[in-house]
Amino acid sequence: MSCPCQNPPAAEAGKKETKPERYVSFVGLDCDAKAAELMRHIRRYIDDPAHSNAFWEYFKKKAEGGSGPRPDDLFLVHSNLNQIRELFEDKADPEALALLDRIEQECC
């Protein structure tokens, strides 16, 4: 029996794939680069003491490996989706929210 991810059904063999399928492969999604870009959006706000709080200070410490091994950016984003969404909604940042939605759909 062959793997469906390597051998599409005959009816779909001639169709061109227009959107990467995250459940088959993460190839071409560049999730690490998207997560790094999102972290830049996050840091733009939380590095300013006027916009930080105890949670974001903990987040910064965790991102730097201050409470154990340094996690990668995608793990941090995935683990804190709701808090990140709230931050961008509070700051009315549609560009960052769109990137967060894309990462959530394609990478998490």
Rank of each mutant, 00 (worst) to 15 (best):
P9D: 12
G65E: 06
P71V: 14
A54V: 12
D48F: 11
H51I: 00
P94N: 08
L87G: 12
E12T: 11
R70F: 02
A35I: 04
F26V: 02
T18K: 09
K15C: 08
I103C: 06
K60P: 03
R70W: 00
E37I: 02
Q6R: 01
R85G: 15
A54Y: 02
K60I: 05
E17R: 05
D73R: 06
C107T: 04
P71W: 09
I46A: 13
L100M: 05
K61N: 14
L97T: 14
E21Y: 09
T18S: 12
R44P: 00
H51T: 04
Q83F: 10
K16I: 11
R85M: 06
V27Y: 05
H51A: 10
V27S: 11
E95R: 15
P20L: 04
T18G: 11
P4D: 04
T18A: 11
I84T: 14
N7R: 08
A63C: 08
V77E: 02
D48H: 14
P9H: 07
L97A: 07
A10Q: 10
C107F: 03
N53K: 03
V24G: 04
D32M: 04
R43C: 00
A33L: 06
K16D: 09
K15I: 09
F59S: 01
K15F: 05
I84E: 06
